[in-house]
Nucleic acid binder design. Sequence first.
DNA 1: TTAGTTGGTTGATTTATTCAATCAATCATG
DNA 2: CATGATTGATTGAATAAATCAACCAACTAA
Lengths: 383, 383
Amino acid sequence: MSSRSDQWTRTATRIFRTIWRNPNISRVDLAKKLGLDKSTVTKQVADLLENGLIEEKEEGEASARGGRKPIYLAVNKEYGRFIGIELQLGFFEAVVVDLAGDILETARGEVRITQENFAATVADIVDTMQKRFCSDSLLLGVGVGTAGLVDSKKGRIKYSVPLGIQKTLDFAKAIAGKLKAPAFIENDANCCAWGELAFNRDEELKDFLFALVEYRQDETSLIRYGGIGVGFGVVLGGRVHTGAHGYSGEFRSAFCDGPGELQFSLSREELMCLRGDKNLLHRTVDELARNMAMLINTMDFQHVYIGGDIEALDIDLPAILRHRLEENWMYPSPKDVEIRYSSLGDKAVAFGAAGMVFERLMAERSMPGLAVELKNLDQQIGA
Amino acid sequence: MSSRSDQWTRTATRIFRTIWRNPNISRVDLAKKLGLDKSTVTKQVADLLENGLIEEKEEGEASARGGRKPIYLAVNKEYGRFIGIELQLGFFEAVVVDLAGDILETARGEVRITQENFAATVADIVDTMQKRFCSDSLLLGVGVGTAGLVDSKKGRIKYSVPLGIQKTLDFAKAIAGKLKAPAFIENDANCCAWGELAFNRDEELKDFLFALVEYRQDETSLIRYGGIGVGFGVVLGGRVHTGAHGYSGEFRSAFCDGPGELQFSLSREELMCLRGDKNLLHRTVDELARNMAMLINTMDFQHVYIGGDIEALDIDLPAILRHRLEENWMYPSPKDVEIRYSSLGDKAVAFGAAGMVFERLMAERSMPGLAVELKNLDQQIGA
DNA sequence: TTAGTTGGTTGATTTATTCAATCAATCATG
DNA sequence: CATGATTGATTGAATAAATCAACCAACTAA
């Protein structure tokens, strides 16, 4: 008796999502928006209320022509929390996020990741975060973002230059049993895309590109890949695009001639001194902009978000990109493409990892309280 | 009484599609594949049989361990037809296609298209084709493919260099009432993508790029755009990607520096003599391959189809692309991307336009016989 | 012949949804 | 200030698409 049928959960998820995206919406408006009968909404909402996923807010104002006041509905932020973690070569960045997408706590620390201790490291971070920040609240899920080829569906890291991972690391298998909540792993740039997508209330945000441009100055990174790393997160039709093999978003400039490990046509020596040489920096960023312009026009993205510490460097990538975009577009009527820095700064990956978990629980319809009627669970335990 | 509910049609469409993709499938296998109860399938199949959309084929072989022979199901090819039309500067190419995706008839002729006579020209072609080739059979829909910026959802041509269309042409409005069947318009490269998608039985064909590379030698084309034109059709997650503004698939090389109307970094004079100059031809095609390699790796496409009359030129684009793809991929494990010429030759656009109609009728669930119970219609007419 | 197996059908049951009626609460108006 | 119009929310009966369980049909293998 504990689980509802698939159809019920499906509708419950749709309703929950809509309430989530439109705080203070009435039952009637929900019904209109979803093309359902208002009585259907009443019944579903009663269930969501009982399970604690949403709550009734104060009544709104009646229409000018009279009528009963609507009862506003909103998600219960306190229902549960997500933990998002970015793992990099020498450090981690973690955030605790509530159901509204608000960051409650952040943490940063040093770690030394190896093929072997990867899952254990994640489990440690989660345990610490949970004890410190949300011991009383329900942990809904954990998301991990990291650079490299990640097969997110299978939960594996195939390869990672920055982390020095050479053979497949089965994260899903390694983490199994170590945590009480579900855990997911995803490429860092894709995480950023998830972040913009998941906790954004704009339903029109359906086709965008997130460019994660990192510049590392530590010796290992400089030698391994010249210090500058670019990854894309691609969202099409409102969904993060994983690609045929799960490797979407990997970038290497079209200007590179011949094989190599660098993402740009510049030499390793040139890349290593970008910070000092304004001219070289401009050449590199312009090369990136020309590649991106082609990609953006061909795929017809609506928005471009730029994240990573490129923002800290003394160069205006958005302006350069805007210029190259216009140049690359051959038609008289200009196309409006919104380009801007991500507002999340150095928390973008960790925050996005949390957002990914939210989206995946919704997509898989395995969010506790949506898939399972909690009241009946209690009865079972009580009996 | 004539129309079933949305849910019924939805399931009917799913079943019809699955039978379409798997000719000679049994009811039980259908149920397994779609996660339905076999009794549900029995009822739906009875409806589809009555409406004539599918038919029972001979019985198959019983399993080795005994049991009743399955009754194979297949679509009724003769149920209806599609007309697909490619419109170019001086000529049209049209095909009549049955429900199985088999080309029954083709036609080719000269036309002189203007902003004003566009819809009338299409109506003329359809009337002629219908009288000659399928007067007895049900015309399910008409698809038109043409070069330029096409907003397929709204049925408008925004702009077309090859056709010389400078201001928006509202095809949907202009064709309304002129035909008895629904008509759709789409960009030519996207049509090719629809063609590969619609009439391809491989369910795994979900992420691919169709590159339509045309080389025209007439003077107008040579002067307007150098004679060589490249457009992409993008399929992601099994759906043709239209883009945020509906302009997905437009191409201009990242190597172009500064504004201009040409798609490549070569000068108009250079482009105009590609056929004679092997060296210039190779430079152009290599430039295309480098752009495509970046696009393909970043978006992680699984297949690449190449169409248009590039095939007639003396150069091996697939080989060059394969080479550039390998170079552009930085990781040790090779990624399998299948590259090949489209098998449809100069009929690719027209055929694809027909495929698009099929897909759209399915997606909108407005295929006659799926949305409406024909038997009841007859009763109504008879009464 | 008989038991076991698989494909397909039938009618009762389940369940999410809609429909229709009703209650609840507000505004405008004479 | 009663009345009607209007809008939001609830309730229980009706609807319809799915499942379930039982059965028939037809085959293999012993």
